[in-house]
Write a protein that binds this DNA or RNA. Structure first.
Lengths: 207, 207, 207, 207
DNA sequence: CATGAATGAGATTTCATTCAT
DNA sequence: GATGAATGAAATCTCATTCAT
């Protein structure tokens, strides 16, 4: 009995991954159920055995991804002390997720954002809550920044704005990379991003 | 002999503006032709007198906006000398366009980006070319940065990456603002953005 | 005042001719009012100054043509005595009308026939009555054939069927010619058609 | 595992037959997809599972019919020796097909012809090629006529024209019959048609 | 009179979802 | 469970006709 449940979850995951593939290529709005079914190598009707509808797949994709990246971030960030180093870790994890490990996901981030800023029905808003996700991130970053300010590493600042800028800038540079993958590689991205950002907020030492 | 005289370009503009209103509220994919017709206060069929289909409206919206913002940027930026000041102008123009003057457009940027990173048919790619738009911006920024480096204001850097970061970060923070308009206002955005960015790339003076 | 009326009739004729041009190229069903307007070099609305609707144009075209060919036939056929010669004249007039003088009309005969065999509303049936036109022709041919039988030129026959065959065969060979105009010319058509038909019905002389 | 098994070809045939029914009543141009759906007893959307659009149905109807009549003709005509007898068989098969067995098809012939003489796009011209069909028929008839000439049964003639006349006259008399089914029956049609035509081309015996 | 911009009724077409097998 | 044929609601799109200028 137990293995049955594992199979079911595994199959859902397979379908979500297939959906992600198609979403990334055509965009969420232009993806038809038949496209997902074909990509998953299953029948159209079978999808409805595992998901209520297309929105449901999208929400699952959303949850799956942010759970994973959230877990990874929580785990890794806990291991460091220096605020600048923690931010660096955050950047590396994000970049690694979007560029290296989960290539297709990067391409649908925009669809997620686009959906995220609009009003939906109760059902979707409850689960698919981009604002909540970013609030969480922002709160973590705010704490790190405050820690840095307290420790005298960072200059005094509007931590809420700076946290938003950190997150926004990271997303934004990834967006640029999506459009022109040839302009720079992921190492350049991480290194230069951190250099400029940390430089921008660090306490100037008066000599 | 003389039938009603209509300024076709003006009418097209009216329809595009009405479309923008609806796009910003529902998203491009969820907007129906009838929604646009109602918003424009015209009949369903009338839209087809001016546009081939929804894509055509979208492309016109794209062109209209980037022509305007491009013109505004070119005009204002020509008036300054100091690289840091020019960047500041660029930020202010962009922020002012997206937040103050052209409120609805900001909400559609995500749809534009989302479409922009995907492959389309020849026809669409020729006109709706996000990559080309950003290339143009990037080249302008690269020159400004290089100018600053040459003048000793900015530290030596990978100007291509830094330009991409500048543009990406600006878009990214605007994105954050779209989701949570209460977290900071446009003045805070411009000031702090510039402070951190300029600080991040300026030549450190050894004393 | 009087010249006004002449102008009006002349303009109607112009529109009908323009319509015929387009009908022959695209088929009646696939012709749009705008096509006719463009072909006539007038505005779309102007057509409605002269015709109630598209059907009305079609009916006028029908009447115009069959009045003309009917007049021509009546006039010329009255000048001959010999039944075979009269039939020959009938063929020549028809061929000349469809092939030489009124080229476009031949191409829409099929649309006329196609419409002619179907039920329509009262209005159309009253004016656009293909059956009546053919009945008229048939009655004329029947009389000619009967005359020939009486005179001993033609063998005894079912004159109703033979008249139908004469008309049908003439239409049919013209149809073949429409599809392949290179296979034979109008002189060959007339000569051979008459030779075979007259041969087919003439009284065999026992020697 | 195994969903409903449907013979796609059989279903396509059913839809084509239903379409034929409606076409014959209203004409191809005046037939709506919903009419065909209702006639076939299926949903509007189901048609699109089997056909791309109305043209596609029309083309399939064309192919289906001419394949059938072609096969029937080839089969039966192979069984006779005497040229006059073979022509008689050809007439009987055609008449039987159009009048007796495939009643509805006769009514659509005009739409087929009307479309057949016009230019279409490559795609349609390739499949829906009336000219090719008639060329085939004509070549067969030419051979039969030549055979008769060689054997001394038929007089010397322009076989290409005569073949066209044979086919055209047969179509033409059927057209007449379509308009006035009361004027003669199919037996009269076949007998008299052959009598007159054969008489018209046979070698005159000098006594 | 002449016009063509505007219209909406009605056609075509798409596609998420259902459900019999 | 798995399937894909069937569906019709809802979208797109067309075009004959009207009517203000």
């Amino acid at each position: 009995m137990a293995p049955k449940i594992v199979d079911r979850e595994e199959k859902k995951r397979e379908i979500v991954m297939a959906a992600m593939e198609v979403f990334s290529e055509k965009g969420v709005a232009n993806t038809k159920m038949i496209d997902i079914a074909r990509a998953a190598g299953i029948g159209k009707g079978t999808i409805y055995e595992y998901f209520k509808n297309k929105d449901d797949i999208f929400i699952n994709l959303f949850e799956l991804h942010f759970t994973e990246i959230g877990n990874a971030a929580a785990e890794v960030m806990g291991r460091y002390d220096d605020p600048a180093e923690i931010l660096q870790q955050f950047v590396e994890i994000t970049v690694s997720f979007l560029i290296n490990e989960d290539h297709n996901f990067a391409e649908i981030m925009l669809d997620i954002w686009a959906e995220g800023i609009r009003e939906h029905n109760e059902e979707i808003n409850r689960v698919f809550n981009l604002d909540a996700v970013y609030s969480q991130y922002r709160d973590v970053i705010i704490q790190i920044l405050q820690d840095g300010v307290d420790k005298g590493t960072f200059c005094s600042m509007d931590t809420t704005f700076t946290a938003s800028l950190f997150i926004g800038a990271l997303d934004g540079i990834l967006l640029q990379w999506l459009m022109r993958k040839d302009l720079f590689d992921s190492a350049t991205l991480t290194d230069n991003f951190m250099k400029i950002f940390i430089n921008g907020i660090k306490k100037e030492v008066v000599k």
